[in-house]
Structures are given as structure tokens and as C-alpha cells.
Design a binder for these strands. Structure first.
Lengths: 181, 181
DNA sequence: GGTGACATGTAACGTGTTACATGATTTC
DNA sequence: GAAATCATGTAACACGTTACATGTCACC
């Protein structure tokens, strides 16, 4: 659902060909967002039709399909990224989508993500509290069987994830809110 | 790709109807694994055809489609879970799938996940080292612009995730390896 | 008798994945 | 001149999502 926007943001950072995008998605971007080259070409085609991006063919005219095509974002596409960042309501489970929004904020400029960040923090706190309650209720015993230890480990994975994310998000608040920097 | 196995494991824990499964996926299981009721019914149908699960209709014979159907895992389905846990090679990005395997281990008994856990730990360490290199290379400067701070924050999300996961995984090793407990 | 929860399903659609396909350019 | 990489695309399939559809049961 956010793949076209992931591509738009990558193109805002640097106009690229489909092939280049695929490589970038395999490298840096790919650490938190994946897209195969088929997805990329499909979305690029759609976004050209939608008027979000423009394409310039590089090199000689004649050389047909194998010539490099450089895509760049048009103002409409840029607007679309801003609209998406503003209107798409995320949950804490959409951590990676929020990272995508941060990337958009970094390349376009302040998008006012502070409000959503605060909401996500509240949601993460509530989730964490739920986990803590389960912890108290189900895993307070002195001795736990192997199965219980494993179930507890699964719960702890959730507790750690929320806790770490909250610490990260609190730190981020200062940067996101500081729109004058 | 792991949805049918997620359902099998849930059914091993407790035979349920499709409706009950949907509720369980909305609650506890849903914290790290989602499935809509349509997916559940679809997979249950397939798994009955495959002979992995059996279905018993509860209540009177006549009452047609709206009667509760209780599904339980057959030995073949149980074998399939073990095969899947053994043969499916995960990456650190498949954290939730690994949690699923842990859940399977908790309900079936030791599946020998220690080896895979060690491999995932190695992978996470390598990933973390990559992040640390990027950190040193790109974000060592005294003053960072707002955009750089945001990009750094994105990187830090990755660093924190790996670090936390590694600490969790190290702790888990003792439980997973101790097959005699 | 109406509302909400229980309970199961079908149909259509969009996206992501895998396989297939082609040709140009670079490097050894 | 062979192999690897660059570069773009089509086709088929699987899966997840959303909308639609139906009927029961319990409670007020």
C-alpha cells in the first residue's frame, strides 16, 4: 500500500532508473523496505500515467527498450507524498511506514509528523502496559516449565520491542518537533 | 507463506472453530501474527483437503451452515509443522516467523531450533556491524542538519532493533538448547 | 421484535512473488 | 567471444484485503 510512496521518496532523494531503484532497494532502503524490480517497474508505469513522475530516456533515440530511463518526481507527485504523509493514519505495527515518512520529512522538509509520533507513543505505551499485565498474570511463578519459558520469551520479545521503540521515539520527538533547525 | 502453519500451531494449542481462531488471532496471537477470518476459513478448507486437520460439526445434524465446526490437527498436520520448523530457513527479518516456531516448540516439544537461532544471531551481528559502519562513516560529524538527524534516527531504529533482538536471542539460547528441561 | 454477538462462507480485487524473456554493455 | 552485469519488461500465480451475503442465538 505504501510501495509507490516509497518509490516516490527514493526518487525525490535522487532521480533514478528502475534498475537503479531496484539496487537501492536492495541496499540501504532495503534494510527496512523491500521491493522487487517487477514491483518497481509496475509502479513506475502507473505513476507516469498518473502524472506523478516524468521519464527521460537517456542516450540515443534509436536503441529501443534497453536504454536507460531516468525517472524524476513532478510537483504533483511531491504533493501526493505530502498528502500521504499527512492523511495516512498509522499504528505502532507500521513502524517501517513511519520510517518512510521520516525519510520523506528529511527530503521534503517538515511535514508535521510530531502529532502522529505522539499518538504512536501513546499507543505503544498502552500496548506495553497490556504486555506487562500478561507478564504479571501468567509468568509470575517461581518455576516455569520449558513451554512456559518459551511463551514468556515470546512475550518478552514484544515487551523489548515496545520498550526500545519508545526510547527511540522519545528521542526522535525533539528532532521532529524542532521545525526551525 | 506461514499462515497455514500459524493456524496449525494455534489449533495444536487448542482445537477451535474458524470463528474462535479469528478471535484468537485478534487477541494474543495477533500481537505478532495477523490473519483475517477469510484467510482462516480458506486455509482451514485447504488443510482439511490436505488431510492436515479434521473437522467435527457440533450440535444437531440438520442446522446447516451456521453450526459450529471444531477443527483439530491430525498427526499428518503435526508432522507438517515439524517439517516446516526444521526445513524453513529464516532470516533476521523474519523475526515473527521465528516467534511462530518458538510457539510450535512450546506446544509440540523441542524442535531443535538452537542451530537456527545461532545462525540468526550471527546474521543480526553482521547486520548490526554494517549499521555501525554507516554510523561512523555518515554521522560522525559534530553538527548535523535536521535532515541528517532524521536519517540518523532511521539508522538508529535499525541499530536499536538489532541490539535489542540480540540481547533477547542470547537469553533465549539457554532455554532453546536445554532440551531436557 | 430488534439489536448485537456468534458463525460461516463467496466474490472481486490489488499487491507481491516467481518465472520467463529479451537485448545491450562491459570485462576478461 | 564468453560471461557477468546492466536494463527493461510480460505473464501467471499466490496471497491478503475488502465487500458482500446469509443465518443463528441470546438478551433486552
Amino acid at each position: 500500500m505504501s510501495t509507490p510512496h516509497a518509490i516516490l521518496i527514493a526518487l525525490l532523494e535522487k532521480p533514478s532508473s528502475g534498475y537503479d531503484l531496484a539496487r537501492r532497494f536492495d541496499r540501504a532502503i532495503g534494510y527496512f523496505w523491500q521491493a522487487t524490480h517487477q514491483q518497481i517497474y509496475r509502479e513506475l508505469g502507473r505513476m507516469v500515467s498518473a502524472g506523478w513522475v516524468a521519464v527521460v530516456e537517456e542516450g540515443e533515440e534509436g536503441a529501443a527498450a534497453s536504454r536507460k530511463k531516468i525517472y524524476r518526481v513532478l510537483p504533483v507527485g511531491r504533493e501526493e507524498v505530502m498528502r500521504w504523509a499527512r492523511d495516512t493514519r498509522l499504528s505502532v505495527d507500521d513502524r517501517n511506514v513511519f520510517l518512510l515518512k521520516l525519510r520523506a520529512d528529511a527530503v521534503i522538509g517538515p511535514l508535521g509528523l510530531g502529532e502522529e509520533l505522539r499518538r504512536l507513543i501513546d499507543e505503544a505505551r498502552a500496548r506495553l502496559e497490556t504486555y506487562r499485565e500478561i507478564e504479571r498474570r501468567d509468568f509470575g511463578a517461581a518455576h516455569l516449565t520449558r513451554a512456559q519459558q518459551l511463551q514468556y520469551a515470546i512475550l518478552k520479545a514484544g515487551i523489548h520491542t515496545q520498550t526500545t521503540w519508545l526510547a527511540w521515539a522519545e528521542e526522535l520527538r525533539e528532532i521532529v518537533d524542532d521545525e526551525a533547525a
